[in-house]
Each structure stands twice: as C-alpha cells, then as structure tokens.
Amino acid sequence: MNAVSVRNLNVRFDDQVILERLSFNIPQKSITAIIGPNGSGKTTLLKAMLGLIPYQGEVLILGKEISQSFEKIAYVPQRFSFDKSFPITVDEFLNLEISKQGRKKSNINTKLKEVGMEKSGQQLLGQLSGGQLQRVLIAKSLLNNPKILFLDEPAAGIDLKGERSFYELIKHLNEEHGVTIILVSHEMDIVYNYATSVVCLNKQMLCFGKPKKVLTDQMLKQLYDENITLYQHKVDKHG
C-alpha cells in the first residue's frame, strides 16, 4: 500500500488553475520532496493532500480518505506564526497535542530528546530560535507516532548548520522509525542528498522518481526556466 496516492488532482482558486491533473504514488518509508519554482503550487499540493483546501480528484492516505487518517499523519507548517510574547512553555505547548496514547510527561520528554531539545521543556516557546522552534514542532508532530510526516519548507529561516542537522534528524526519523516524509523544499542540494523520491511541479507534474534519475539538467531547465546544473557534494553527517 502506498503512503499517499494522488489521482487526477486539480486545484482551482476562482478561475485560476493552481494544479492540474496530478497523479502519483508516494511509497511508504520514503523521503519525498516536492520541488518547483515560486508559485508552482508546492504548498497548495501539500495542503490538498492534507485536506486543508478544496480540490477535485482523489487523495488517499494509506488507502483511506484523509478524514479517516488523521491519527496516522502529522504536519509541520511553513510558518508557525504566533504571538512571541505569549507565555507558553515548550512542555505546555506539547501537552496541547491530542493523543489517544495519552500525553504522558515521559512521552513528551522522549520526543524532545529525540529532536535534541530535552533541556527546553521549561523554556518559553517565544524565546526559541527558528531552528529550535522547528525541532519543537517536529517533537510535537511525533507525539502521536505518525506514519507520515508532512513538512512545508521545514528549514526556512534556519542557518546552514542548523539546516543540515535538521535534515539529519528527518533522515533519522525516516531510517530508524520508518516514518514516511513528504516535504516541500526549494533547496536542491538537500533534495539531492536526502530525498529518495521527488515530485517536480509547475502547476502540472513535470517529473516523479528518484532525484538522481529524474533531476537532469534538461528537467531543471524545464522546471526553473533557466540553466541550472547540480554538482553533487558529499554531506558531512557531523557538520
């Protein structure tokens, strides 16, 4: 069974076509990146898959409608905008998550440790850096042990070092816990080094497959309408 199955997906806002006739299957335990230029519909596709916006077509999450799959998925939005002066601790924030397995303190501590934020429980959410906040959001999303994690440009606003360690965390979740990762990204090097499959998008789907196979110079030119060549760098895991 596929993690996500999309069939003939169309999204329109008023008369404007945002996404047109998309069909693809995302396998379980994969890291799938959705890439494309600005305005190509990446975030729209993610939101359609999550049922956050209306669409035509079919989206199945682990073979079921999204409304029947909430317990198996988690989502980290692109911008988690909140009043930074609002006095809520990390522990309290995580405790808000609804879980059938209970919101045990030990569970919260385990997840915070998992994302390297074990000492932040009593810190105020508004005082965290961008990278720390993203890690806390990941910890929150993991509380219900999801099978699929949706991330919308998760490293936006994080410095290079933080970005790399963040993606190492994503890779760890995928490899060690078998979580399917579906993320929107515009960082080609990250996609190339971490993703196991890629959806190239520009209102229509231009390619789908393994990054090293489908992200050719020709495809990138078609996608971004300019000459782009990828040079592969080896990622230092401890960097």
């Binding site: 999550l50 909430f70 980290v76 939005p77 808000l96 998550e97 609804i98």
Partner: peptide, 13 residues
C-alpha cells in the same frame, strides 16, 4: 490548539 494554529489543530483531528 485551534487558537494557536487552526491547520495543525485540524490535522490533529
């Protein structure tokens, strides 16, 4: 949770 972020609240069921 809804006041904080309605989208993640929706995904939480």
């Amino acid at each position: 949770l809804v006041v904080f972020d309605r989208e993640t609240a929706y995904i939480s069921g």
